[in-house]
Design a protein around this nucleic acid. Structure first.
Length: 901
RNA sequence: GCUCGGGUGGCGGAAUUGGUAUACGCACAACACUUAAAAUGUUGCGCCGCAAGGCAUGCGGGUUCGAGCCCCGCCCCGAGCACCA
């Protein structure tokens, strides 16, 4: 045998990357092939900046690449696309700094990203790249916006918005983190501005309900639920007594006397209607619209001062002083519709203007209200009794606040009811009097959709004075391209730099032909990323954003779950019993709107914003009939962060940034990819450790050197045709089950068994994203092979096949070396054979009183009686028995015998 | 404060979900090869103990023949939400 060449990753990796590029290996060949076995794998496309890929990107990209590659070998028609999110602040800031057009910068940055991505050997379909700042792409982003506008879901509103004084940009609530700008960390202020809004709140229920139909990892689902924040309760009306002197009912306790059509009413949202009888005062937000009307002349000065003070505070300051419940009395009173008592109306900034009705009724059963009442000596009344008598003693004396549910007291006819019962009875009672109505409230607020920046999609609307409103551009005029400007800076007045472009701004109204002005705000960064997964299905279409046929195919409802367990174990009578291909067909017919991207992996940081926004867009597009599925993604998983070697988040300022280019240069792409998978559990944060990379590189060297142990001639394996792989239950797969064993030489039964157990483990672990244990299993297999004198061609090739999703270059090279004409990337994934995986001899552990005392090597088929007898006969066990009779002997099949004395 | 995760050797981490705790890798040590080093290979490697054996999965209890895993009560770390009525 000629001397083996050394493993040289640089040479072979470049070779295969060139080959894949030249042959367009991973481009989808047929958009409609065997729909029951298609797979759409999606990663979050990178947000473009000048720094290029950091080491965090390869984690999700490699993970999905491994899954995509395995699925291809299993015969799936796989779509694994890539694109670039290129509108946004990093590029704009760079343009401002250098004075160069962002369009140019984007092209350079994309070229760099692309070079890096290619060097990582990803099996992307490079023919489907999308770029959100390309007019061919944003034409359709604008088109979708027009549909929102035409359906009344995009509207302009003057309202206080979150303003970042550094970025000079209006922010959606979702983009404000702890009162600071999400991007730059500057505390945000409130500013009043006309803003385009998208009515995402109209979809609150649908967005919540949709979560029940998708397979998201729990934290992602829970975060979405919390963000939408649905709560059931009631809106209660509190009639205001403008002047105490004029009110004849003063001091009376007769709720029936409350007039029905009093025109000054404070509405309050509550989830605790059971506490209504303890309501002794009202508190409204400083921004409440009725503040002026409610403030009496005597209180005017104090109230104005308080409001001014709170307006000056930033959101962090307002929430920082958590415990101190400052407030001010308006001078007015309102009537409690349940008790008829008069309640002073206060203003306090712990009440949020944006939530509920911006007003609360305050009582002894809420910590904040309780604290405020104590501070200002406002009378309190207890109406909920806890079960614990000791607590009740203290609560009655008003020494302690009891905010939980209990039994009603001091509540007239409702005394004795539980909180839950009381809510159901009190609501109709108040409803009848016209003082309350059922209400479901959401935390979710409408989405501020305009930005005062240059580098974003222009909003395709003009304002026409004559038509008295905003007029959409005809769809035929899209895309409305960004004009070239000289300066990219946002202005202090909060206007976009586009507003200085008078040529561009002044236009004619598409409706009346008269003079009109263009909207100069642009769309937020989230716009382009809210629908890119749809464009991948049909990226070059210039008639529509994607054809329905292609969307139906790629986003289709077919559930090809990696774990068919879910379907087969379902109690659903429809699926019980028979699980054949007709199930999929049945689903697609009966369950319209079902489906989505098969598997979407992305960062936890996007589970609220991006995921919610894109679900909203997709649901809207479904409702207007242009996409086939209600939800955009069937399955969502998330990766943990990669931390610097010091265990801290990687950042330039800390100097702990790892550059993937350098790692690849030093260890090779395959080793880098393997280390990314091996470094730790996929969903958890892990520290970077270059030593670990050394370990996987050693493993690859060993796999390479194992070829010397292969002595028999290659079993010329014919690649199964695509059709053969699609029918995966084949008898035709040359590598499946026993057929492969013909090629075996001297190897032990043990190795064959291990080989099959490894096939099983690696297959299951890849689907479960347990890449670390999959790789550990491959290492174990190769360690066993190292111990053998010789291994068979067949065994070696199975190892290479299992390795190939992780380390595709070395695998393809070895595959070629061993005389296989076909691409390994499309060769059949090895088949697991349960029979061959069985070991002939097994180790049974013998425990005495729960402690391991002996181990027995026995034939796998040993009977229960035999093994029990053998265990009791064991010398070591006898020693522990000390002549006594065992009380009980337990046998766990194939595992252990437990002797109890 | 609330909601999710998590706590296992010197380190990253395994453990088929109640059945041999510490797989795999790193680091370390000894040996082989080498003039030497690197690389590679072999062996060892939780703690105490000469051994028999004992003790170990954040802490304290419990259930069980048997608990890293289940139950009760705490402590610590990470992520998200946070005056949401």
């Amino acid at each position: 045998m000629q001397r083996m060449q050394k493993y040289d990753p640089k040479k072979i990796e470049k070779k295969w990357q060139k080959y894949w590029e030249k042959n367009k290996t991973f481009e989808v060949k047929d958009d409609f092939a065997h729909p029951e076995k298609k797979f759409y794998a999606l990663i979050e496309f990178p947000f473009i900046s000048g720094v290029g890929l950091h080491v965090g990107h390869p984690r999700p990209f490699t993970a999905m690449d491994v899954i995509a590659r395995k699925r291809r070998m299993e015969g799936y028609n796989v779509l694994y696309p890539i694109g670039y999110d290129s509108f946004g602040l990093p590029t704009e800031n760079f343009a401002i700094k250098t004075g160069r057009p962002p369009q140019e910068i984007v092209l350079e940055n994309i070229a760099n990203f692309k070079r890096q991505l290619k060097s990582l050997g990803y099996s992307f379909d490079w023919s489907r790249e999308v770029d959100t700042s390309d007019p061919k792409y944003y034409k359709w982003t604008q088109w979708i916006f027009l549909q929102f506008f035409k359906h009344g879901l995009a509207y302009k509103k003057n309202q206080p918005i979150n303003w970042c004084p550094k970025d000079k940009i209006g922010l959606a609530n979702e983009e404000v983190v702890n009162g600071c700008c999400e991007r730059c960390g500057t505390p945000t202020e409130k500013r009043n501005k006309d803003q385009w809004m998208l009515a995402i709140t109209k979809y609150a229920d649908k967005l919540l309900d949709g979560l029940k139909t998708v397979d998201y990892i729990t934290p992602a689902r829970v975060q979405q639920e919390n963000w939408i924040g649905r709560s059931e309760g009631a809106v209660v009306r509190f009639t205001v007594i403008l002047s105490e002197a004029k009110d004849p009912r003063h001091g009376k306790r007769d709720s029936s006397a409350i007039p029905q059509n009093d025109n000054l009413v404070v509405e309050v949202f509550t989830t605790r209607l059971d506490t209504i009888f303890s309501g002794t005062f009202l508190v409204i937000a400083p921004e409440h619209p009725l503040v002026k009307q409610l403030t009496t002349p005597e209180q005017k000065k104090t109230v104005e001062k308080y409001i001014q003070e709170t307006a000056q505070k930033t959101d962090i300051e307002r929430t920082a002083e958590e415990k101190d419940k400052s407030g001010v009395f308006t001078g007015s009173f309102a009537l409690n519709p349940a008790t008829g008592d008069k309640m002073p109306v206060w203003i306090a900034d712990f009440v949020l203007a944006q939530y509920g009705t911006g007003a609360v009724f305050a009582d002894a059963h809420d910590e904040r209200d309780f604290a405020m009442a104590k501070k200002y000596n406002i009378p309190l009344r207890v109406s909920i009794r806890p079960t614990d008598d000791e607590v009740w003693q203290r609560v009655q004396k008003l020494e302690e606040c009891f905010p939980n549910e209990g039994t009603l007291v001091n509540s007239d006819q409702f005394d004795g009811l539980t909180s839950a019962e009381a809510r159901e009875k009190i609501l109709p009672w108040l409803e009848q009097k016209g003082m309350a109505r059922r209400k479901i409230n959401f935390k979710l607020r409408d989405w501020v959709f305009s930005r005062q920046h240059y580098w974003g999609e222009p909003i395709p609307l003009v304002y026409c004075k004559k038509c008295a409103g905003w007029i959409p551009l005809p769809e035929s005029e899209l895309p409305l391209k960004l004009p070239e400007v000289k300066k990219y800076e946002p202005t202090d007045t909060g206007e976009s730099p586009l507003s200085a472009m008078t040529d561009w701004v002044n236009t004619t109204c598409p409706r009346c032909g008269g003079p009109a002005k263009r909207e100069t705000d642009t769309m937020p960064n989230w716009a382009g990323s809210s629908w890119y997964f749809l464009r991948y299905c049909d990226p070059d279409n210039d008639k529509e954003f994607a054809s329905m046929e292609k969307l139906k195919y790629w986003m289709g409802p077919v559930i090809q779950s990696a774990a068919p367990v879910i379907l087969s174990e379902a109690k659903d009578p429809l699926t019980l019993g028979e699980r054949d291909s007709s199930v999929a067909t049945t689903l697609s017919q009966n369950d319209s709107g079902r489906g989505g991207v098969d598997w979407y992996n992305g960062g936890m940081e996007h589970t609220v914003l991006h995921l919610l926004y894109s679900r909203f867009w997709n649901q809207f597009l479904y409702d207007i009939g242009v996409v086939p599925t209600r939800e955009p993604y069937k399955k969502r998983t998330s990766h943990g962060m990669i931390l610097g070697p010091d265990g801290e988040k990687m950042s330039k300022s800390r100097g702990n940034v790892i550059n993937p280019d350098e790692m690849i240069e030093q260890f090779g792409t395959d080793a880098f990819r393997m280390y990314i998978g091996f470094m730790g559990p996929f969903d958890q944060a892990v520290k970077w450790d270059t030593n670990g990379l050394v370990g996987v590189r050693r493993f690859l060297d060993r796999v390479w050197s194992l070829q010397e142990k292969v002595t028999d001639s290659p079993t010329s394996l014919r690649a199964p045709l695509l059709e053969e792989r699609v029918q995966s239950t084949d008898t035709n797969n040359p590598l499946s089950s026993r057929r492969g064993t013909e090629g075996e030489v001297s190897s032990s039964v043990h190795l064959t068994s291990l080989l099959h157990r490894t096939i099983h483990k690696v297959s299951a672990d890849i689907e479960g994203m347990r890449f670390n244990t999959a790789i550990a299993a491959l290492m174990e297999l190769s360690n066993e092979m190292m111990k053998e004198e010789k291994i068979s061609n067949f065994q070696y090739q199975v190892l290479i096949q299992l390795l190939s999703p992780f380390a595709p270059h070395i695998a393809e090279e070895l595959w070629e070396k061993f005389g296989n004409g076909e691409m390994l990337a499309f060769f059949a994934w090895p088949k697991f054979d349960a029979e061959l995986a069985k070991e002939s001899a097994i180790t049974i552990v013998v425990q005495v009183n729960g402690k391991v005392r002996d181990q027995l090597e026995v034939p796998a088929e040993i009977s229960e009686e035999d093994i029990k007898a053998q265990a009791l006969a064991s010398e070591k066990v006898q020693k522990w028995l000390e002549g006594k009779e065992p009380k009980k002997v337990i046998y766990v099949k194939g595992k252990l015998v437990s002797v109890v004395i």
